[in-house]
């Protein structure tokens, strides 16, 4: 019996070691593009996933551009991203308001395992259950980086994807977890600063109907304060706007650009990034 108990108790140690080795090797293989020192890395949620034409931006900047944007991306994914990008690299972070106010359980949280990120979340009062469910989602390594983007085809008119009521629900009241998420966002940004990354922030546009809802919501004040807090982390922080072409419909739905919008935005963003110095928050309109 002693022998059985001893072996049963020791069995998991070997498993953890082997699992760790395999996980590390496979994860490194899947995400080896993160080792590219002279590239631009993008992070964001679905707005950035569909709203940035990676090829266009890459042509403009004459650099490799990789995107880690993923629909539904959450704060955990952002923390992990900041861990993965190499030091001294150039980073575009999409400051999506929906990332901040999306219900925690709807966050993607599936871009790999990081004890650092989990610890930060635990410190910010994420419950053990929440941490456990994140671990469960990340047991298998996943490719988090790509050099292509998936764009929505152009159409003359916008589709109503999610109904307006969905967004009204989201903006009805200030979520209790907003500050918690914003603090974690700031921790990630600080990590990028520590790594000496050149950070550009990008606020992708919403359709005017959604802007209307947002402007009437109490959340607006909180997200504006948050932008201010981001600015305070940098010595040379500026804000700039990118005006998208109004001749054609640029929206796929209320919160996502179509391919025309994405191309236009990427072109103009690239042009500005080539000349701008310091840390800039670009707001596309």
């Amino acid at each position: 019996m002693k022998r059985f108990i001893k072996k049963t108790l020791f069995f998991p140690f070997g498993l953890i070691i082997l699992y760790g080795i395999i996980y590390f090797c496979y994860n490194t293989y899947l995400n080896n593009k993160f080792s590219n020192q002279n590239a631009v890395f993008i992070w964001g949620d679905s707005q950035a996933y569909y709203g940035i034409d990676v090829k266009e931006l890459s042509n403009k900047l004459e650099k490799k551009v990789y995107t880690s944007a993923i629909p539904g991306a959450g704060i955990y994914d952002f923390l992990l991203f900041t861990e993965q990008v190499p030091e001294n690299s150039e980073v575009i972070v999409s400051v999506s308001k929906l990332v901040q106010i999306r219900r925690k359980e709807n966050d993607f949280n599936r871009t790999g395992l990081s004890f650092w990120a989990l610890k930060k979340m635990y410190n910010e009062d994420y419950s053990i259950n929440e941490i456990y469910s994140i671990i469960k989602l990340n047991i298998k390594p996943k490719r988090n980086i790509s050099e292509t983007s998936e764009l929505f085809a152009y159409s003359d008119s916008m589709e109503i994807g999610l109904p307006i009521s969905h967004f009204e629900d989201y903006y009805r009241e200030v979520p209790t977890f907003l500050e918690q998420k914003q603090d974690l966002y700031l921790i990630g940004i600080k990590n990028l600063i520590r790594k000496n990354c050149k950070v550009s922030f990008l606020e992708l546009p919403y359709h005017s109907k959604l802007v209307n809802i947002e402007s009437k919501s109490l959340i607006k004040k909180e997200t504006d304060v948050f932008k201010y807090k981001i600015g305070k982390l940098f010595n040379n922080f500026k804000m700039d706007t990118i005006s998208l072409n109004n001749n054609k419909n640029v929206f796929k739905d209320l919160s996502h650009l179509n391919s025309v919008g994405a191309k236009d935005l990427s072109n103009k963003l690239g042009t500005k990034m080539l000349v701008d110095e310091g840390t800039i928050l670009y707001t596309a309109q």
Binding site: G14, L15, L18, Y19
Partner: peptide
């Protein structure tokens, strides 16, 4: 032998 068992467990996880 243990490595084989571990691989089965990892396959279950992945």
């Amino acid at each position: 032998r243990y490595a084989a068992y571990y691989l089965i467990i990892i396959a279950i996880f992945w």
